[in-house]
Structure formats: structure tokens, C-alpha cells
Design a protein around this nucleic acid. Structure first.
Lengths: 261, 261
DNA sequence: CGGTATTTTGAGCAGTGTCAAAGACGGTGG
DNA sequence: CCACCGTCTTTGACACTGCTCAAAATACCG
């Protein structure tokens, strides 16, 4: 259910997860000037090259960033959900580096860029949380690069599934082995550097092997640990400073035994 | 020739390019506690998962970041040269997300992470420059992702060549159509998500088509604008807030006409 | 219920990867 | 200045993953 009067509280709770701000800081964040907008699916918020006047916080729904090559191929570079600042690494740049678009119907807060930056300079706790947010986003981007560069289709897709599930858990959107995967197969392809046709075939194969089931835009995972393994979310990731990763492991274990037992 | 007594001045001039700090700020940057280390090629500075105690600034030579998949394949995610902070987006994270390694013999300054962050909070100009630095690094990472995900081998390689040349010009390391490409073909493969064998063949083809010549670890470009075009550094990039891009265009034009005329 | 978006299939092909071996290069010690 | 050795580059033959094009089958939505 949506908050009766949407505000920036999901941003606050996300930042709080990185570096707990005091109550004063929370007030300041909530008091940030902003405009809340309700958007249809597939609506372009920002085009690459636009002047960056606002930063965007996702309050509900999903938003993604992508770029189009000279040949017209599209690559999705990030995915954002409740509480996320869209593309936080670009906060300090004056020109948008990506196209930003809604994936689903979404509620987005527009905050003047300067206001958020000022606040960050004024409150070290907020600044630190923001920097942590940037770091995590960049780490995710790096992981995508590794996947697209060096992993095969199965691994890329499983990796994406795990990442989405984990981030949803972290954002408090889902809980348990059943979650939303709000992308069409073509979009999955654009995120993983594959063709929609190949995504379709790989997905069929993975389903046939019993990793998960899909129904509409919903997934039910049968064996988290295998998905995790095929997705190569191995040892490396566990060492990461991402709360969600370890939390996910804790959640994942029971889910698996429920299934297996 | 190397500065007789290496210091942080290349960092200062790089940051100054983003957002000119006052002289006081420059003093503070130069006064940052640091240790300068001279490193052999291929030396591992940081391993993924290490506690992040220092940040690293490249004073000379080249450094890169990479990650290894569960299958043992390596993906290089970034390349750093004089004046660069290695992996600036990770400044706020406590654990290293990548392996950091020297490409060539290099001089690197180790700065305690906290000292740099403190300074950023204390001086808005430095903070802003740092954020801009982070933004540019993230934009580069995103561009690599697009390339690896959606461009063919020729484009990826040409893109990498242009990027390196442009960044070298920006760092004041090279000037003109002749520059250093300090990577082996295997490393080029690891950066572009290709095999060293395929890199070799593609490079031969590009050379045969007259785009450039290589000699040792040096490249001489014959036709910047074509390289730029094949590398898909087109329209998009020009709109970017990267000083080096536009500067590069200005440099590139004469170079081409020298060749063509 | 019709129309559009998405998923699924099929057949054939192209770009890259694999494996293995032969050359070329560059630095080192004599 | 030369011989030697390890590192890179280059080649060849072949396999395979993932792409293309096109059409059919479904699912979704008003």
C-alpha cells in the first residue's frame, strides 16, 4: 500500500542504513524542497545531455538509466527502486550522462540538485551517507560490467535476478522467495547485453532446470543457493560492504530449506 | 622526466580542472599526509575485500582495477593515470571492491582515506571537485558497460584507444597523434571483454585499414575522426561535461588534417 | 472483444572463443 | 655485441554461443 501522503521518508531510511544520521539530519532531509510526481510506465524523465537541475528519488515503482549507441542498440546501466537516488554518482555533474526512464508506473521526488548537495556539505553524516550511496551504486555498476564482459548468458541473468531480489529485500519491498521482476525480456536483454530472443531461451532453460518459476512479472525462486551460484554471486560479493548482501544470505537459507525440505 | 621530488601537485591540478580551488585549498591538498611509493609493473596494491585504509593517487605510470569471476576470467573495470584518484567512487566504502594493480612501473601516493574525506567536508571547493571526479569516473565506467554490452570488437577497441588518448591529453601526458598505450593485448582483452586472440586479429584489421600504426607500446593515429567514429564516441560524448572530450576534438582536427593533407 | 505488446519458435549465420604452436620482441648477463 | 629466455604477438583450424529475421502463439488492456 502506498503511503497516504508520499514524502522523502524512504530516502531517509535508505541513507540511514549506510550511516545513521541524527534526528536533526532526518528533519533536514525531510525538509528538502521537492516536488512529487506520479509517472506512467516508459516515461522519459531525463535525456542524455540534458542540463541536470534536479536529482530524482524513487518513492515507488521502478526507474532505469540507459544509453543508446550510434547503431541504435540500447544498454541499461542501472535500475532503481524505492528509496534510491537515481544515479547518485552523477550528483555533481551538470549534464545528464544517461537517459532516465520509468520501467513501471512510479512515484518520483524531484529535488533541486543544489539543495541536496548543500545539505551534504553542511551535515557530515548526510554527506557520508550520500558518499556511501554513491559507492554502492558504483560497485553495482562495476559488477554489471564484469558480468557483461566475462560471464555467459545464464550467469548474467541469474545475477540480475539475485541482485533485484536482494535489493528489494533491502528496500523492504519483498520478503521471501516470491518477488517482482518488473522487466520485459527485451529490457532484461538490454540490461544484460543480450538479445531478447536469447534471454527467452535462456530463461526457458533455467526454468526447466527448476531454479524458479515465473508468472506474469513475478518470480518464485525454488533454489536460491543454486541461483546464487550460477549467477556467480560467490565469495567476492559476501565480502562487500553491502548490508543487503549478507542480509540476503540470511534470508536465502531458510527459503531454500523450506523448498528443499 | 620525473619530478625531482614527487608530490601531490598532479592531484591538485586535476581537481583544479573540475572546480578551481582557492590557493588555501591547494595548500591543504598538498599538505595532506601521504606516503609516496615507487612500484614495479604488475604489482598488486589492493586486493578485493581488503579493508580500505588509504586512497591512492597516481603520480606517474598507470594503474588499473579489475575483478575475477568464479570461472577465473578477469575483467578490467578502470584505468588510471597521472593525477587520478584510483577508484574515487569507493572513497566512502570500508572494503575494497576491486583488485588494484600497477600496469606499468608507477609512482603512487597513499593518502589516509579519512584525511582526504575530512578535507572534503571542510572545504566545499575540494568536496565539489572530488564529487566531480567521482562523477566523471562513474561516467567512464558506464561508457565501458555500454561498449562491452552493445558494441562489437572494433568499436570497443577504437573507443578504448580514443579514451586513453583523450585522458592522456587531459593529464598533460601526451600531445599530438602519437601516444602511449601501455597495455598488452591480453590486458586490452580483459578491459574490453574480448579474448587476446580476437584483440590481435581486430587490431591487425584496423591497422590494415589505415587507422593507426603501433610500435611497441606506442600508437600513432592516422585518422582521429575515423577512429572516433568507429569507436562510437559520437554525438553523445560531445555533450558531456568532460573537459577532455571537447579539448580532444580541438586537438584531433589538426592532427587529422596534417595526416590527410 | 479487438488491438497491441510480449513471449515463443525455427532455421541459419556471424562474431568470438578455444586450443595449440610458431614467431617476434625486449631485456639480461656474459 | 651476442646468445638466451621469458613475455608478447601472430597464425591456423574449428567449435560454439549468441545474433538475425520472421512468423506464430499468447497475454494484457481498455
Amino acid at each position: 500500500m502506498m503511503a497516504s501522503s508520499p514524502n522523502l521518508s524512504s530516502l531517509v531510511s535508505k541513507l540511514a542504513r549506510r550511516s545513521p544520521p541524527g534526528t536533526a539530519d532526518c528533519e533536514k532531509l525531510l525538509g528538502l524542497p521537492h516536488r512529487i510526481v506520479e509517472l506512467d510506465p516508459n516515461k522519459l524523465l531525463v535525456a542524455e545531455g540534458d542540463e541536470a537541475t534536479h536529482c530524482h528519488v524513487v518513492l515507488s515503482g521502478y526507474v532505469f538509466c540507459h544509453k543508446v549507441t550510434g547503431e541504435g542498440a540500447r544498454q541499461i546501466v542501472s535500475l532503481h527502486m524505492r528509496g534510491d537516488i537515481v544515479n547518485p554518482s552523477d550528483l555533481a555533474l551538470d549534464v545528464a550522462g544517461y537517459n532516465v526512464q520509468t520501467l513501471t508506473r512510479a512515484t518520483v521526488a524531484y529535488i533541486p540538485r543544489g539543495a541536496l548537495l548543500d545539505l551534504a556539505w553542511r551535515s557530515p553524516a548526510i554527506g557520508a551517507a550520500l558518499m556511501a550511496e554513491i559507492g554502492v551504486a558504483a560497485a553495482l555498476l562495476g559488477e554489471w560490467l564484469v558480468g557483461v564482459g566475462r560471464r555467459d548468458a545464464r550467469a548474467r541473468i541469474c545475477h540480475l535476478m539475485c541482485e533485484i531480489a536482494a535489493r528489494q529485500q533491502d528496500a523492504g519491498i519483498c520478503d521471501g522467495p516470491d518477488y517482482e521482476w518488473p522487466m520485459t525480456q527485451e529490457q532484461i536483454g538490454d540490461a544484460t547485453g543480450l538479445t531478447s530472443v536469447h534471454v527467452n531461451r535462456t530463461l526457458q532453460q533455467l526454468r526447466a532446470e527448476g531454479y524458479f518459476r515465473t508468472a506474469g512479472r513475478r518470480v518464485t525462486v525454488h533454489d536460491w543457493s543454486k541461483l546464487w551460484e550460477v549467477g556467480d554471486l560467490g565469495t567476492n560479493r559476501l565480502a562487500r560492504p553491502m548490508a543487503w548482501a549478507t542480509r540476503f544470505i540470511r534470508e536465502a537459507r531458510p527459503a531454500r530449506s523450506i523448498q528443499a525440505g
